[in-house]
Amino acid sequence: MRDELVAVFAGPDEAHRALDALREQGIGGVRVASPAPFPVVHMTGQPGPWRALGWIALVGGLTGLGSAIALQVITSVHLGLVVGGKPIVAWTSFGVIMFELTMLFAGCFNLAAFALLSAIARRRVARAARDQVTCDRIALVVPLAGVEDEIRKAIRDSITAAALEVVP
């Protein structure tokens, strides 16, 4: 049971003001369900999975680098042909393909990580909030679990939204 307050706003400015009001009251954990098309009320300051993206891209790049080295070295050694007087394992020549595959794998891993982490992240916002939101509306989702009734009332009073609803 999440027990969340869903406040739906007609536009991003109203949602922004409400977010500022909540911050002033020291209410944390607020999530924004602003549907596409643009990120106005994003960056609520909470830690999130996006910090892992850089590391995942790095792992992807290193995978690409390893693949390029393996492909070129193993096949060249297996073939054993001297071409143009260059050594069989010619690192200078192999550098280009190593670079290209490093970048290619980093990009692909980055996109895959984005798709996966997004799917996980959006599940954290209550379905009720997502269902209420249309393309022209923005919802703030305030976690209320463990919050006293008096503070709940204060939160509700501080938000002037088009619609307010507590959802389990």
Partner: peptide, 11 residues
Amino acid sequence: SGTDSEWCLFE
């Protein structure tokens, strides 16, 4: 769906 987490991930 445009939640804050998704936007952060996207950017």
